[in-house]
Design a protein around this nucleic acid. Structure first.
Lengths: 193, 193
DNA sequence: CTAGGGTGTTACCGGTCTGTAACTTCTAGA
DNA sequence: TCTAGAAGTTACAGACCGGTAACACCCTAG
């Protein structure tokens, strides 16, 4: 029988959520499994009963992040059903909000930078998930009736990725402050052929 | 009397250059000082006689990277003296070449991502040097007679930064493959008012 | 009530990390 | 040739890391 208190959440989920947060804030190599389990109110043995290794935990965290992103896309469709152009503008707004709120960039990109070993198991997952996000944005641009949808989607992707990393190196007053203006300008310019 | 052989280079310079290369390839937290000194053909004591700490070494490496970038800018001016627009195109070409040759992004951005502690001593340096690069690109756009030089410079900056990180997460076939087309298109579009 | 699986606790392994101490060797310059 | 300082060598301290073993505990399903 569930009583709904937070403490009753399964340890596995607590670990996953805590790890996501800590990896995001401090980086993967900047957080040890001991720190994660302690912050999650559990212990190392329980972590290793649910995850094969730290690398495995990292991968599960990335999948969870991708899952959250999926929810975003469904929200766009729900809020602007059928109106693909409005969904594209919602994507820009959401991206800008994340930039201002968060301060630290995309978990997948950060992981890709940190895990420089080319054969690291997480790299396959990162590539897959990033590719899926790219395909979805291309599809959105195409369905919005924009010419050269791939080029617009790729340009927007690079702008956002760049804004995220610029935010961490130059700060909020740097180039990333102009992200919305750039993105909206690009969309108009592509729509005008 | 100097005999010119590579082994006669001062240990400090060997350490600095080796560290730059290894930090670039494997990340800062992915390389230990032992590995650096061994690859540099020296030892840990010598490293700590020349650098206060690993963090200090990191900062010196970043300064050296900025210094190399300065040399690039001087090359642009030398190859296209007075022709600021040609220098801007040379910047795009250089950026694209680095993208294809290298595979791993900007040392400063990577360091900013890896060193997530907000009070890390390297962060000040990163911000300063990145700001200087931004100012220089803005100046180049302005001197090239482009309207809204700040917006173009910032957009180009974000595109390049995004291309570098995208290269590491999605791979070379991803959005970064279109960098030159995007950048040149932007420049034309800004020049056409 | 009881059996069993999920969980917590403690201790440990072997390895790596930054940074230092004490000492020896090399080498450049007077 | 002699000397002073730079560089190399070895060993070590203290901390942290990922991962495992053995065992005690609780809570729920039957």
């Amino acid at each position: 029988m569930e009583d709904g208190t937070a403490e009753r959440i399964r340890p596995r989920d607590r670990i996953l959520e805590t790890a996501r947060d800590m990896f995001h804030k401090h980086g993967i190599k900047g957080v040890g499994v001991d720190a994660i389990t302690e912050a999650a109110g559990t212990n190392k043995m329980t972590l290793y009963r649910h995850f094969e290794s730290k690398d495995d935990l990292v991968i599960e965290c990335l999948r969870a992040t991708a899952c959250s992103a999926n929810a975003m896309w469904q929200k766009f469709e729900a809020e602007h059903p059928g109106d693909k152009l409005a969904q594209l503008h919602a994507w820009v707004r959401m991206a800008a909000d994340c930039l201002m709120m968060d301060g630290r960039g995309c978990d997948m990109a950060n992981a890709a930078i940190e895990l420089s070993e080319t054969d690291h198991p997480a790299r396959r997952v990162i590539k897959e998930l990033k590719q899926a996000q790219r395909d979805r944005l291309v599809g959105l641009c195409r369905d919005a009736g924009i010419g050269q949808p791939e080029l617009l989607a790729d340009t927007l992707s690079l702008l956002l990725e760049g804004a995220r990393v610029s935010l961490q190196s130059v700060g909020a007053e740097g180039p990333s402050a102009q992200f919305v203006r750039m993105a909206e300008g690009l969309i108009s310019s592509f729509r005008a052929r």
